[in-house]
C-alpha cells in the first residue's frame, strides 16, 4: 500500500477521474463542479439581482454534498495519504519559477508566495488570488462549464462546444503565463 502514499501516476489519476464521472452518471447526475458556484450565489440571495440565479437550489443539494466530500477528501489526501506533499515538477520549470520569485518551486504543493499564511497582510497577493478566482468564476459560467464539465464530461460525450471551451482555457492560460506573468511577477 506504499504507492498510495506517493503522488499518483497520471494513468491512475486519470482513471480515477473517469471513475468519478461514471459513478455520478450511475446515480443519475452529471460531473460539473462550477455549477456549485452558481448555487452559492443563489443561496446568498443573488436571485434579487438576476433571474439567472432564480432556481430552486435544493435541486443542487447533491452537488453541494459532493463539494463537502471534495473538502474532506482534500484533508484525507494531504493529512493521511501523503508522506511528502512536495510536487516534483520539471527542474527547468523550477529554475524558471525561482527566476520569477517563486522560491518554493519544487519544494511545496502550492507556492508559499501565494498560499502561505503570511499572505493575509499582502494586499498584492490577496488581489491576485481574488482576481484569479473572479476570472475562473466568470469564465466558467460564461463558457457554461469548467474543467470537469467541458474537458472531462463534454469531451467524453464528443461535444464540439466543449472542445472550443478547452481551446479557450488553454489560450487564456498561455496568455497569462507567457505574457502576463513576466509583468505581474517579473
Amino acid at each position: 500500500m506504499n504507492w498510495i502514499m506517493e503522488p499518483w501516476p497520471w494513468y491512475v489519476s486519470g482513471a480515477a477521474i473517469a471513475g468519478v464521472m461514471l459513478l455520478l452518471l450511475l446515480v443519475g447526475k452529471n460531473f460539473g463542479m462550477s455549477s456549485n458556484l452558481r448555487t452559492f450565489c443563489t443561496i446568498c440571495g443573488a436571485g434579487k439581482s438576476s433571474d439567472f440565479f432564480q432556481f430552486d437550489w435544493k435541486d443542487q443539494k447533491w452537488n453541494l454534498i459532493v463539494v463537502l466530500g471534495a473538502i474532506i477528501g482534500g484533508y484525507i489526501g494531504s493529512h493521511h495519504l501523503s508522506n511528502d506533499v512536495a510536487v516534483d515538477i520539471n527542474p527547468k520549470t523550477v529554475t524558471e519559477l525561482q527566476g520569477l520569485g517563486f522560491e518554493s518551486a519544487g519544494a511545496e504543493y502550492l507556492p508559499d508566495e501565494l498560499f502561505d499564511a503570511g499572505i493575509w497582510t499582502n494586499p498584492k497577493v490577496i488581489l491576485l488570488l481574488a482576481l484569479g478566482g473572479f476570472m475562473v468564476g466568470f469564465g466558467a459560467r460564461y463558457a457554461g462549464g469548467c474543467t470537469s464539465g467541458h474537458a472531462i464530461s463534454g469531451l467524453s460525450n464528443l461535444q464540439w462546444p466543449s472542445l472550443l471551451a478547452v481551446i479557450g482555457f488553454f489560450a487564456g492560460g498561455m496568455v497569462m503565463i507567457y505574457f502576463l506573468y513576466p509583468i505581474i511577477f517579473g
Partner: peptide, 8 residues
C-alpha cells in the same frame, strides 16, 4: 468564456 476561465 473559456479564455477568461483560462486566464484565471
Amino acid at each position: 468564456g473559456g479564455f477568461i476561465f483560462g486566464l484565471g
